[in-house]
Computed example of a mutant assay.
Amino acid sequence: MKWLNKILVAGGRYTLRARYKNGGGHIVHIRMGVENKAEIYDPQSGEIFTDSKWIKTRTNEVYSNDKYRWGKNGEYTSPLEAWFSIIKFTENGSWKGPELLRVDDKNFNVEMINNILKEREE
């Protein structure tokens, strides 16, 4: 995960779009966490994946490296590495890997939003 830690900027918020090896895909939030390492948050499941912990925020369950191994045979060193192991990076020689977009430095297109949204009528 060194490559990811080099790309992320402290204080930056990102979306990460990924395709699964077994089909389908997902979008998650990613940022540089308190340990100054990449941290994925999945708002759909409420799970957080870090270099040392897998946290289920809805049940307050925490699984850490000191008690658990990751992957079917314990082949991964962290929950974050295990999460990336199910992601497709290439297909037929073409890049199909994760797409990272920094979002905290983007502005809303207010004109577009006004064309899509309508003020609530009482």
Rank of each mutant, 00 (worst) to 15 (best):
M1N: 06
L4D: 02
I7M: 03
L8P: 03
L8Y: 01
V9F: 05
A10N: 14
A10E: 15
G11L: 03
G12A: 13
R17I: 02
A18W: 03
R19S: 10
K21E: 05
N22M: 09
G23E: 07
G24R: 08
I27S: 14
I27C: 12
I27P: 02
V28P: 00
I30R: 01
G33A: 05
E35S: 10
N36M: 15
N36G: 07
A38H: 01
A38M: 03
Y41D: 04
P43H: 03
P43A: 01
S45P: 05
F49M: 07
D51L: 09
D51M: 09
K53A: 09
W54K: 05
K56L: 08
T59W: 05
N60M: 13
V62E: 10
V62W: 12
V62R: 12
Y63A: 04
Y63C: 05
S64M: 11
S64T: 08
N65D: 12
R69A: 15
K72R: 14
K72H: 15
K72F: 11
K72M: 11
G74F: 04
Y76G: 08
E81H: 06
W83C: 01
W83R: 03
S85N: 14
S85F: 05
I86C: 12
I87F: 04
K88G: 01
N92T: 09
G93A: 08
S94D: 10
S94P: 02
W95K: 10
W95S: 09
G97E: 06
P98C: 08
E99I: 11
R102T: 05
V103A: 06
D104Y: 09
D105W: 03
K106N: 09
N107Q: 14
V110W: 11
M112A: 15
I113E: 06
N114H: 11
N115D: 09
N115Y: 09
I116W: 13
L117I: 09
L117N: 14
E119Q: 15
E119M: 14
